[in-house]
Design a protein around this nucleic acid. Sequence first.
RNA 1: GGAGAGGUGGCUGAGUGGUCGAAAGCGCUCCCCUGCUAAGGGAGUAUACCCCUAACGGGGUAUCGAGGGUUCGAAUCCCUCCCUCUCCGCCA
Length: 422
Amino acid sequence: MLDVAFIRENADLVKEGMKNKGEPDSSVVDRVIEKDEEWRSVVTELDNLRAESNKKAKKIGQLMGQGKKEEAQKLIKETGDNKEKIKELEDKLSGLEKERSDLLYQIPNVPDKSVPVGHSEEDNEVYLTWGETSEEEWRKPHWEIAEKKGWIDFERGSKVTGAGFPFYVGAMARLQRALINFFLNEASEKGYTELQAPYFVNEDSARGTGQIPDKEDMMYTIPRDGFFAIPTAEVPVTNFHRDEIFSMEDLPVYYSAYTPCWRREAGSYGKDVRGLNRLHQFDKVELVKIVHPDSSDEELESLREYAESLLKKLELPYRTLLMCTGDMGFTQTKKYDLEVWSPGQHRWLEVSSCSNFGSFQARRMQLRYKNEKGKTEILHTLNGSGLALPRIVASILETYQTEDGDVLVPDVLQPYMNSEKM
RNA sequence: GGAGAGGUGGCUGAGUGGUCGAAAGCGCUCCCCUGCUAAGGGAGUAUACCCCUAACGGGGUAUCGAGGGUUCGAAUCCCUCCCUCUCCGCCA
């Protein structure tokens, strides 16, 4: 969420950001300012009343200590009416607080100046393209290859769990494991600390990274225990340091984590869901950065370059999109999507999305640092996939298939697979 | 799952109704002294919010696991929840 003080001082900027993100009705900005005004006046009133009764209570204590019981009794009688008023104001205040934060949660992060203004994916900017995309007729989509080889078992996955929960069999399971190891090893060489994170999180954590209240429906829930199955490792990893205060020399902090991810993907039916394109459970290595506010711009670029380097090493043609304001999401200030070429489907598949959240997430979870002057300030957070497996697997199958029906193993994965061929 | 103990500031730890935001020690920061080092002396050292101030700064409120309650007054009493530790049970 944004800082109320920031909204107060930059109302127009915030409204413009909302409009550019596709929300023409920005009246919530004015309402939050109003609510905050009201909240502050109640706080002042309440604080004064409390100060008064604290003073009296102290006095009573003193009198009691001196054995002046009667005087004390007299004072006690006087304090009665304050008490009710305080209680009343306390209730009013917590009501206002709730209303204010409900409004605050509806205001999206402000896009960075460098982000192109637009309202749909058509307005995204192709930032760069790498590699030669092949278009040969003979190339099959990955699901055909996988089916012929018996590598992915969608049917049994449906039987055991449901649609979107496939089994990976034999060489395919090995390939997944190879990719995970490759990604994690690369990340740790680049200074990312590897984390193994919980796969379930509580409500506070889901709120911290912004899944709640915005994207509640994407998550699977474990109602009995109040848990959510993580839709991405971003959630547990970013929350790792929730409510903590860093000192400057601890920054920046880089984490990598492999986890399965669960997404309900409610309402997404149609041709996009074929094969590995969209699953309810998939594997991903996620990268999270916690950085000084001044450096988050550069950190986003290096995060993007790192994710791109993985695709280069796998020799998979890709392109990088700079997402426009309308297609970038509620919590980001700036976002790049990496899309790998799928030669069997003749289309691009999103395999990574690298985002800068500015202070938006960090404020929600009170992630702070002490600056040179010893003042605490909110940090910036970023994350990016490095990378998401299923579509990489799809692209590998389609890119590395041979005309006679085999699939070769990308050079960098051969040590992990002990083989040149799947 | 059963029984018990406990959760206090960066850490250790005192505090069982009144001037306690909290003793003491450690750590850390700054200063002084000591010709280096060691030792010593002094000051400071939580977070959030509100108000005043151009700013330096000042005033106030809240927070002793969380939430609620009793009371003029709660770290201290009561209730609920969470977490940690010990023992037992179960178990990869």
